[in-house]
Write a protein that binds this DNA or RNA. Structure first.
Lengths: 129, 129
DNA sequence: CTTGACCTTCCCCTGCACTGGAACGTCCAG
DNA sequence: CTGGACGTTCCAGTGCAGGGGAAGGTCAAG
């Protein structure tokens, strides 16, 4: 399987595949006689895992950790669980922060909406911020 | 007010203040005879606004957008209201996306938590992700 | 034989928000 | 008058996740 086919099949680009190899997410594949990368079919499974991890918001470094554990012959379930747990904490924090911001922005907007334009002259720049 | 004092008072660094000036978040301050930046006291208010925005996760570009409208001084209420309204829409979208992602991640974590390790074959990539 | 699609390596660029460091100027206390 | 703490500019790097494009090799079709 050549790099273009794999890119097509996995929904990425050849650039990304070479980058993943460089980043240690993909093992260096076999090379054909002319030097072309020759991927094993199960690379697609690995790339699906990477894609799912990215979708879950994991960094490439975290995904590589999991893959390294698996490649060492150990089932990475516990590690995956811990990663997802930590990711949940991050997400909760992000959501809380955004909701707090939303409240702030909503109040500011309400202040701007109900303002009397005479209070809002050009010399005193908008005080609702 | 020299840059070190302002950095101290605002809880940032001199590097950051020069960067903010470069980025258009702070207007170029007066200079003393020796070339030192000489900040007006109300710069602190501006930096507080920047800090609140940053703490809540706004980008500098978004903060600058708000400050630019404010600095335009041309009865900015309507523009500010529109901007805040649009920002609210973005925030709602971001929050909804993150909550959807949170549900997905929570579900994945639950799968990993209740898994029987004997089901976790080291030869396959963790199927709980 | 040439065209075009593919592949290779190589290095630099992007956006974000800074951060580090060099090389140099200024100011105040001891 | 010297040391240290400040200030100045300019250049470069960080981490993330790739993208752009050059310069060249390879291969099948027409």
């Amino acid at each position: 399987m050549r790099i273009g086919e794999l890119a097509e099949a996995s929904g990425t680009t050849t650039k990304t595949l070479r980058f993943y190899e460089e980043a240690g997410l993909l093992p260096p594949p076999e090379r054909t006689a002319n030097g072309y990368r020759d991927y094993a079919p199960d690379t697609l499974v690995r790339l699906d895992f990477v894609r799912r991890g990215r979708t879950a918001g994991l960094t490439l470094a975290q995904i590589r950790e999991v893959l390294d554990i698996r490649d060492a012959g150990v089932a990475p379930c516990q590690h995956v669980h811990d990663l997802l747990e930590a990711r949940l904490g991050d997400l909760d924090q992000q959501i809380a922060d955004l909701q707090a911001l939303r409240h702030t922005v909503a109040h500011l907007r309400d202040g701007a909406a109900t303002s009397d334009p005479t209070n809002c002259d050009a010399t005193t720049v908008c005080r609702y911020l």
